[in-house]
Design a protein around this nucleic acid. Sequence first.
DNA 1: TGTCAAAGTAAGGACTTCTAACATATAAGT
DNA 2: ACTTATATGTTAGAAGTCCTTACTTTGACA
Lengths: 207, 207
Amino acid sequence: MENAKKAKPAGLMKSGYHHGDLRAGLIEATRQLVEEKGPDGFSVSDACRLAGVSTAAPYKHFKDKAEMITAMVTEGMVRHRENMLNALEGVPVGTPARVTALGRQYVDFALNEPGVFRLKFGGFTDRLDDPKLQEAGEGTFSIVLREVALCRGETEITPDVRRRGFMLWSFVHGLSFLLADPKLTKLGGEFEIDDILSDLSVRMLAD
Amino acid sequence: MENAKKAKPAGLMKSGYHHGDLRAGLIEATRQLVEEKGPDGFSVSDACRLAGVSTAAPYKHFKDKAEMITAMVTEGMVRHRENMLNALEGVPVGTPARVTALGRQYVDFALNEPGVFRLKFGGFTDRLDDPKLQEAGEGTFSIVLREVALCRGETEITPDVRRRGFMLWSFVHGLSFLLADPKLTKLGGEFEIDDILSDLSVRMLAD
DNA sequence: TGTCAAAGTAAGGACTTCTAACATATAAGT
DNA sequence: ACTTATATGTTAGAAGTCCTTACTTTGACA
């Protein structure tokens, strides 16, 4: 009787009933709104309008507004991590070019999804409390650390490797913020992002 | 001419009427709220409560909420620029130590006033539209450029100087964001901010 | 005393988040 | 197939906050 209380046949997730997959739909709507109106220009009501459902619908999927937005950011960060891994494909192991490639992908995420990026890193983190989100962030950083270690000829994450990784992250992180704001970017004059990133990688991986 | 009025003296330095200097009082209240509740945890009503005036009072001094918060951020950035200039005092001209000192002050501002810092740089800039604010920002960056030029033996802001300055800014900017968030800072392991900043200055000013 | 800028009072009107009660489509069990 | 349970959505609305404006009052100064 109660042995089959948690049957969740996956193969046909789209064969929903009313909406299909409202949870995903709301997350997508949330993402669009944040991209369109900025990190704070979001309301549950707006997301519902965009998703085409009533304002009460989200509460069947999320405890409250915070959980809804946290879910969206978490999804974004998981996507970010995957992008970072993919960026390494085909780049020779143990070369600074791999670090450069990671930096380029990091910047690209900030440029492609500035709303999500700033929501995650712009100082709202206090309220974004989710183990999966934390895990995605740490996982992403560990990708960088591994590449730095390889470049430095280390077999494990030494304090020196961690320090260099953190410095590289600081740089790419700041660059992402500056590039996401035209008013600030223009102060840098004319430059190629790739040049700056490879220059940086070489400097930070040298002795 | 009933001069027997019991008007409170109060130094009269302000235009002494009801509040003294409500404009400044509201800006300070706004700042406190942003520091306490984060970049988006601010409302005109709250600021009024904190300043001890009615919710209609601000509209004698600011056109609307946006102008009020822009004024607060602008004031913060002017303060920031002054701090940067002061940080150079006593540091030998033409040495990387001067760049390091600027970076340290930049980071300190982010740590001391994280709310203002993130409000300015966290992606709300679209709405923060004020010539004085823009000027304060550009002025601050020009301080950095001047020091970089001196270190590089240049007499003017060449493209190379601008590029190095922008890279240094990126780094310090990103570091500030990471340091303002304990969850992110701890990924860097054990380190001294000053060590990282001086290490960075040397690397970025080298040929 | 009269003027005028600055603050207070009151209120409008729009939005929010979230809950409660009700409706219905799908899945499960018989 | 039929019933039942569950998940999902809708409608209605409570309860509250917010921004802003119109009008009134206060008090400093000439």
